[in-house]
Computed example of a mutant assay.
Amino acid sequence: MTPPLFWVDEVAAAGEQATVSGSEGRHAVTVTRIRRGQTVILGDGRGTFADCEVLDTSGKDRLSVRVGRVEFVTRPKPLVTIVQALPKSERSELAVDLMTEAGVDVIVPWQASRCVARWAGSKAERGVDKWRSAAATAAKQARRPWIPEIADLATTMDVRDRCARVVGDGGMVALLHEEGATPFRSLDFAGAPEIVMVIGPEGGLDPAEIADLTALGGTSVVLGPEVLRTAAAGAVALGALGAVTDRWSR
Rank of each mutant, 00 (worst) to 15 (best):
A181L: 11
S58C: 08
R185M: 04
E202C: 05
T182F: 02
V96T: 15
P201R: 02
K77E: 14
G170K: 06
R132D: 01
A211S: 15
A134R: 01
G239Q: 05
G217W: 06
A164V: 12
L55V: 11
F6W: 07
L205P: 00
G45F: 12
P148M: 05
E226W: 13
V73L: 07
I41R: 11
V166Y: 09
V236P: 02
L241E: 06
A117M: 13
G15F: 13
Q84T: 09
P207N: 10
P145D: 07
L86A: 09
P78E: 08
R118A: 09
Q141R: 03
V236F: 09
V29S: 07
D158S: 08
R165H: 13
V173M: 01
I147N: 08
V196Y: 06
L86V: 11
Q38S: 14
R36Q: 15
A233D: 03
I82K: 03
P78Y: 12
I107E: 02
S21C: 11
K123N: 13
E125P: 00
A124D: 06
M197A: 08
R66V: 15
A18E: 10
V67L: 12
S92L: 14
V65P: 08
T2L: 14
A117Q: 11
D158I: 07
K88S: 09
I147V: 15
R26W: 15
G68M: 13
R75S: 13
I41Q: 04
A85R: 00
P3Y: 11
R46W: 10
I107K: 03
L63N: 11
P201A: 05
L176S: 02
D246T: 15
L63C: 06
D129S: 12
P78M: 10
R114M: 06
G171N: 09
G191R: 03
R132G: 02
A208E: 14
